[in-house]
């Protein structure tokens, strides 16, 4: 559905996208993951036909985005990062306008169906300026879906809305995945892990890693991080923890310790045994930070341009 080969986009001397290649099959949800300014939006703008690439090819549903732009654009539903709305239009008129501009001849039934799907049907006569932020986001999705495109491109679909609505939007995106190919960008790792079938990690315009979320985690796992709290440890606890074979590092934090376990070791068991031996009562052992988070930070860190300051 989406085929990208050696895509390059330069703005003057600055290379925003640097030889990116990937494909996405029908029914797949692919996540573009990367820090701000990594080239996610630029990649998406090329795929949606907003701007041409400097070099390389991209095809949407078999149509080249440069040579067969109109057909490629017709096969895409696009939700830009900032939801584009006409504040003075009603919900219904807005969705209907985009449906027609994308070639839907009798939009009424499709508009109705898509508004029901994003739970805005009872708001169809409301002016867009009166919608809440979460509703606007759902309206943005409705606009992208109304012409039933094979490919959906969503740029940071969950940014700036409250947690309950984030969950709703994520559930919707997962639902779309069965009928459409979805390419979505995010800089929230847990989101990519939760929603996507496959993740591409982008940094400074290049793909630095890709694969299924759990594969990535295994491949780059640098060891689990645990939060450990106990009673009776007093002064020597840090020292005792440090001496456990499976433990790589110990950092005292408020109320306990942050313990990094060496890769592929059973850290919890070892800590528990040590606690029994030392006569502590463990009050808490829990993993901290998300699995992909570490992979991501490490890759981005490794990829720093020469001479860049840390942090």
């Amino acid at each position: 559905m989406i085929e990208v080969q050696n895509l390059i986009k330069k703005y003057g001397d600055f290379t925003a996208v640097d030889r990116i290649s990937f494909t996405a099959k029908k029914g797949e949800i692919v996540g573009l993951l990367g820090p701000n300014g990594a080239g996610k939006t630029t990649t998406m703008r090329i795929l949606t036909g907003f701007m041409p690439p400097t070099a390389g090819t991209a095809r949407i549903a078999g149509h080249d985005v440069t040579t067969d732009s109109l057909a490629a654009r017709g096969a895409v539903g696009y939700l830009p990062e900032r939801v584009p709305l006409y504040p003075d239009m009603t919900v219904e008129a807005y969705v209907s306008f985009w449906a027609q501009l994308r070639g839907v001849r009798r939009p009424k039934s499709q508009v109705e169906a898509v508004l029901k799907r994003v739970q805005l049907f009872d708001r169809r006569r409301t002016l867009i300026r009166n919608l809440s932020k979460g509703m606007r986001q759902r309206l943005g999705l409705a606009q992208a879906l109304v012409h039933n495109p094979p490919v959906l491109i969503l740029d940071e679909p969950t940014i700036g809305i409250d947690p309950q609505q984030v969950i709703e939007v994520r559930e919707m995106v997962q639902e779309f995945g069965s009928a459409h190919t979805v390419l979505l960008s995010t800089h929230i790792l847990s989101e990519a892990e939760q929603v996507c079938d496959r993740v591409l990690i982008i940094n400074r315009g290049r793909i630095v890693a890709q694969g299924k979320p759990n594969q990535l985690r295994q491949q780059f796992e640098s060891g689990e991080h645990l939060f450990v709290a106990m009673e009776g440890g007093d002064g020597d606890a840090a020292h005792v923890l440090q001496n456990i074979a499976a433990v790589a590092a110990v950092t005292p934090v408020e109320g306990g310790f942050q313990v990094r376990i060496k890769p592929k070791q059973d850290g919890r068991g070892a800590i528990f045994d040590a606690a029994v031996r030392a006569g502590w009562r463990l009050t808490e052992i829990r993993p901290i930070s998300g699995a992909l988070e570490d992979v991501f930070l490490e890759l981005v860190e490794r990829d720093k341009p020469p001479g860049a300051k840390p942090g």
Partner: peptide
């Protein structure tokens, strides 16, 4: 941006 990415 949406106008420019519509098939029009």
């Amino acid at each position: 941006e949406l106008l420019m990415t519509a098939p029009a």
